[in-house]
C-alpha cells in the first residue's frame, strides 16, 4: 500500500509539469470558472433563459472535452511508458503490480479531477463574495456527475491501454469509442429512430448505456427539467425514472462501469506480458 501512494504522488508530480495538464486546466478550469462567475452569479441580471443557455453551452463543452482529454492523455502516458521502456525500468524495482496499477489510476484521477474541482471551488468562493445565495445542492450534484464522467473515461483509458499493446491502436480505439458515444447522444438517437423505425425501448436502453448521454441528461435535468433542447429520448427517460432516480443513476452507473473497466484492465495487466 505504501508504494501505491508513492506511485500516485509521483504521477501527480509528473502530470503537474506536463503541458497537457496546463492546457487542460486552462481550457476546462477556465470554462468552469467563467460559467460560475458569469452564469450563476449574474443569473439575476441575465434572466433565467440567459443562465440556461450558458449552462447548456458549458455542459456541451464538458461532454466533448472531458472524455477525449482523459482518454488521450491517459492512453498516451500509460502505453507510452510501455513503448519507451520506462515501464520496464520502473517495474524492475520491487513494487507490486497492484500498487503500481492502482497508484497510477489514483494519480491520474487526481490530476484529471483537480482542475475541475478547483475551478468549482473558485466559482463558489466568487459566488459567496458576490453575496448571492449559492445553489449548493446543484453544485454538489454537478461535481458528482463530473466525478462519475471522469471516472468512467479514466477506467476506459486504463482498460484500453493495458489491453492493447500499441499506443497508436489504443489511441485509435479511444477515438472510435468517443465518436460513437458522441454520435449517439440524443440527436443521433432520434435520427436512428426515425430512419429505422427501431423499437423505442431499445433506443432508450442504448441511451441509458452511454455514459456521455447519461451525464448529459443528468446535468441538464439538474438545471432545467423543462428544457426542450434535452431531446425526446432524454425527456422520456427523465419522465419515466423521475428526477431523483435519474440523478442516482447518473452518479452511480458511470462509477460502476468505470470500476469494472479498470478492474478488467488490472486483470489484463497481471495476466499479460508487461512489455
Amino acid at each position: 500500500m505504501k508504494n501505491l501512494f508513492l506511485v500516485a504522488y509521483l504521477d501527480v508530480k509528473e502530470s503537474l509539469r506536463s503541458k497537457w495538464f496546463y492546457v487542460y486546466s486552462v481550457v476546462f478550469g477556465g470554462l468552469m470558472a467563467l460559467f460560475f462567475i458569469s452564469g450563476v452569479s449574474d443569473s439575476v441580471v441575465m434572466g433565467f433563459t440567459g443562465l440556461s443557455r450558458m449552462l447548456l453551452i458549458f455542459i456541451q463543452v464538458t461532454i466533448i472535452i472531458l472524455p477525449i482529454f482523459i482518454l488521450i492523455t491517459t492512453v498516451k502516458s500509460i502505453s507510452g511508458d510501455r513503448e519507451s521502456n520506462v515501464l520496464e525500468y520502473m517495474l524492475s524495482f520491487p513494487v507490486s503490480l497492484k500498487d503500481y496499477y492502482w497508484g497510477k489510476m489514483l494519480g491520474r484521477f487526481l490530476t484529471v479531477f483537480m482542475p475541475v474541482f478547483l475551478a468549482l471551488l473558485l466559482g463558489v468562493v466568487f459566488g459567496l463574495l458576490k453575496g448571492g445565495a449559492l445553489p449548493w445542492k446543484m453544485v454538489f450534484l454537478y461535481s458528482a456527475f463530473l466525478f462519475s464522467l471522469s471516472f468512467v473515461f479514466l477506467g476506459l483509458a486504463f482498460f484500453l491501454s493495458t489491453l492493447v499493446k500499441s499506443t497508436d491502436i489504443a489511441l485509435g480505439g479511444s477515438f472510435v469509442v468517443w465518436i460513437v458515444m458522441l454520435a449517439f447522444i440524443d440527436i443521433g438517437l432520434i435520427g436512428l429512430m426515425l430512419q429505422n423505425r427501431m423499437n423505442d425501448g431499445l433506443i432508450v436502453f442504448l441511451a441509458m448505456l452511454n455514459p456521455i448521454e447519461v451525464f448529459r441528461i443528468g446535468a441538464i435535468s439538474l438545471f432545467d427539467p423543462e428544457l426542450t433542447v434535452i431531446g425526446p429520448v432524454a425527456y422520456y427517460i427523465l419522465d419515466t425514472l423521475g428526477s431523483t432516480w435519474l440523478i442516482i443513476y447518473a452518479i452511480f452507473y458511470p462509477i460502476v462501469i468505470g470500476a469494472l473497466l479498470s478492474y478488467f484492465g488490472y486483470i489484463a495487466f497481471r495476466k499479460k506480458d508487461l512489455l
Partner: peptide, 25 residues
C-alpha cells in the same frame, strides 16, 4: 539490480526518481 539496454526516457526529476527508488527498495 537491473540496468536496461537503453536508458528509459523517465520524465520524473532525479529527485523524484531517487524518492521512488528509495521508498520502494
Amino acid at each position: 539490480s537491473f540496468i536496461p539496454q537503453l536508458p528509459p526516457p523517465v520524465k520524473l526529476s532525479i529527485e523524484e526518481l531517487l524518492l521512488y527508488i528509495g521508498r520502494s527498495s
